[in-house]
């Protein structure tokens, strides 16, 4: 270490952080100006204000018939369908992500194959959900089945990423210990690898389920099932009381699922 004599000399040696900070600031400012220059703030005219008013009013008075009945067009049934899409979609996605994750984990397949796996996953992730939805409708026809397939493929990306992290964290010592007891390869996978991964896998799946319920609420827009179709068609026809009923359905169900998802995941992380 260099010998420092006076506080003044020390001060001169202080790390110079102003350059990166200024650079970041200028970049953000520049991009903001560039973005703002194109976006034209519309004048809110009377019809806009009328719409705001009707939305607020209809929230207090949603279409109760839809909200409190049980039939194919009722909100509870459609939310049930939405959650079902998310549930099965998460389930299939979780399964499809497992081989992708083992392919992409560096400690399993090495640099080359893991790179291929990561590129493949990034490509899958680029497809917007609606495009996937429309592609699957060509296979399954319109309806919730297409939604299930869409959600499962759309989940692969994030779930693979999270799986890879836990696979790359595997403690090889456990395998060594099992080796020393005389376990076979199959037994080593069953008792050495699966127990190390399962808690994370379950936790990630629950988290993704939570996200997927939100995603499944919009799939109806392209005809892939769930509450989205009802919601968007009510809105575009300015039927605000119907739209409010659908929004209430989404809000209640999502809050409920978020609450339990957080609780269960906390429990898994800390142990009962």
């Amino acid at each position: 270490m260099q010998k420092v004599n006076t506080p003044l000399e020390m001060l001169a040696q202080a790390p110079k952080r102003w350059l990166p900070i200024t650079l970041a600031f200028v970049t953000i400012l520049g991009m903001s100006i560039w973005s703002l220059s194109v976006i034209r703030v519309p004048e809110i005219n009377d019809s806009g204000l009328v719409i705001v008013g009707s939305i607020i009013r209809s929230f207090a008075n949603p279409n109760w018939d839809w909200l409190l009945s049980w039939g194919p067009s009722s909100i509870p049934y459609q939310m049930y369908e939405t959650v079902a899409i998310a549930f099965l979609g998460t389930f299939f996605g979780a399964i499809m992500a497992i081989p992708m994750a083992f392919l992409s984990a560096r400690n399993i397949t090495g640099r080359f194959y893991s790179f291929i796996g990561i590129v493949a996953v990034t490509m899958i992730r680029t497809f917007p959900v609606f495009i996937l939805g429309l592609m699957f409708i060509r296979v399954t026809g319109p309806g919730p089945f297409a939604g299930v397939m869409t959600i499962s493929v759309a989940s692969i990306g994030m779930m693979t990423k999270l799986y890879v992290e836990s696979i790359e964290d595997i403690d090889k010592g456990v395998l060594e210990a099992l080796d020393a007891t005389g376990a076979t390869t199959l037994q080593k996978i069953r008792y050495g690898i699966i127990p190390q991964l399962s808690a994370n896998f379950i936790s990630n799946s629950i988290y993704r389920f939570e996200i997927n319920v939100r995603n499944a609420t919009i799939l109806g827009l392209v005809g892939a099932g769930g509450i989205g179709f009802t919601l968007i068609s009510a809105m575009s026809a300015y039927r605000w009381n119907d739209a409010a009923a659908a929004l209430w359905g989404i809000i209640i169900v999502v809050l409920f699922i978020e609450y339990f998802s957080t609780r269960i995941r906390k429990k898994i992380a800390s142990g009962e």
Binding site: G48, I51, I55, R214, N215, T217, I218, L221, L231, I232, M235, S236, Y238, L247, I250, I251, V254, L255, E258
Partner: peptide
């Protein structure tokens, strides 16, 4: 709770 698309749908009206 609401997906960004739903906000966009309302706001574009």
């Amino acid at each position: 709770t609401l997906p960004v698309l739903v906000y966009a749908a309302i706001l574009s009206l």
